[in-house]
């Protein structure tokens, strides 16, 4: 587990990161979201021991970021925004060098390198010189370097920026697979990334945390209730009678439609999966066909943009 407390960094007297605090549980993927210049990279660099915080601490499984930094560095994998590659090395040589530097035991180095090459789909490039690889492959070699040796904490700085959609999806697969063994923090300003990958997000702007929490909270509306839009096939009266029999905590509205067309119903009820499945079950029992269930969630993108715009 990672616990970050009041991490602060000033550069040239100007605060870049101010009192950032968050926790990360084992196996979680945390999205670090914010506009350019928000302090995402600086925070990741602090956690990667590349720069020391001015104040505040972080603890990785009980080890202190500042006092045990050599031990911490054995337990992290870091991919900076520009992948740190030795252009003149072949992919396999590079990863072997990294394995040595990471202090992976000699008898495990070859196995570990082979496994990582496979995990990152770079087998066909293993004997190529890094300087001659395309951007997508370079990024993957950079990621391979970070996940080599299954570090306890993976720090990825915009790992998918400037990749094509196919590469992005591969990259996501690798990160998701890696999260089985590591906690992952990755920074991004691409909102789809968050929806696809993250368990939790930290929104950061001007060096301060604006919001943090689990991502599923965003499926709720402002008042903490769940809203659904149903498209149903069946008699309007039947639908109305089924929904009316439920307790008073359910609000619904049936949109008027022409005869023969599916009925659109908006539902509003306390957030619970049980309530939702019960309602749907009752509808099915009454021979109503459910054609579509759309959550009327407040859009994640909207919410994030709102956070970003607010001061």
């Amino acid at each position: 587990m990672l616990s970050v407390k009041n991490l602060t960094k000033n550069i040239d007297g100007k605060p870049i990161v101010e009192e950032i605090s968050f926790d990360l549980e084992d196996g979680e993927i945390l999205g670090f979201v914010g506009p350019n210049g928000a302090g995402k990279t600086t925070t990741l660099r602090m956690l990667a021991c590349c720069t020391a915080p001015n104040s505040g601490t972080a603890a990785l499984n009980g080890l202190d970021l500042v006092n045990d930094d050599l031990e911490i560095r054995k337990r992290i994998g870091y991919l900076p925004e520009v992948p740190p590659l030795y252009e003149y090395m072949k992919v396999r040589t590079y990863l072997t060098t990294i394995a040595r530097l990471k202090g992976i035991p000699k008898n495990k180095q070859i196995m570990e390198v082979d496994r990582t090459i496979e995990r990152c789909y770079i087998g066909d490039m293993a004997k190529r010189e890094i300087g001659k690889l395309s951007k997508g492959y370079r990024q993957r070699v950079g990621l391979a370097q970070a996940i080599l040796g299954d570090p306890e904490l993976l720090l990825l700085d915009e790992p998918t920026s400037s990749l094509d959609p196919g590469q992005i999806s591969e990259m996501r697969d690798i990160i998701r697979e890696a999260s089985g063994k590591s906690m992952v923090i990755f920074s991004t300003h691409i909102l789809q990334e968050i929806q696809h990958l993250c368990d939790r997000i930290v929104l950061i702007k001007n060096g301060k945390v604006r919001y943090q929490g689990r991502l599923d909270r965003y499926n709720l509306t402002d008042d903490g209730r769940r809203s659904l839009m149903l498209k149903l096939k069946g008699k309007t009266q039947t639908i109305e009678s089924v929904l009316s029999t439920r307790s008073s905590d359910l609000n619904f509205e049936i949109k008027p439609v022409k005869n023969g067309e599916p009925v659109k119903v908006s539902l509003h009820f306390p957030d619970s999966d049980d309530t939702q499945s019960e309602i749907l079950k009752e509808l099915l029992h009454a021979n109503i066909r459910v054609l579509e269930v759309t959550p009327l969630a407040k859009d994640l993108e909207q919410t994030i943009l709102q956070f970003m715009r607010s001061e």
């Binding site: 660099r45 990667a48 021991c49 590349c50 560095r73 054995k74 870091y78 900076p80 990294i98 370097q145």
Partner: peptide, 10 residues
């Protein structure tokens, strides 16, 4: 940028 990499290594 590999200096950063070395900094993050033990």
């Amino acid at each position: 940028g590999t200096l950063e990499l070395l900094f993050s290594m033990p």
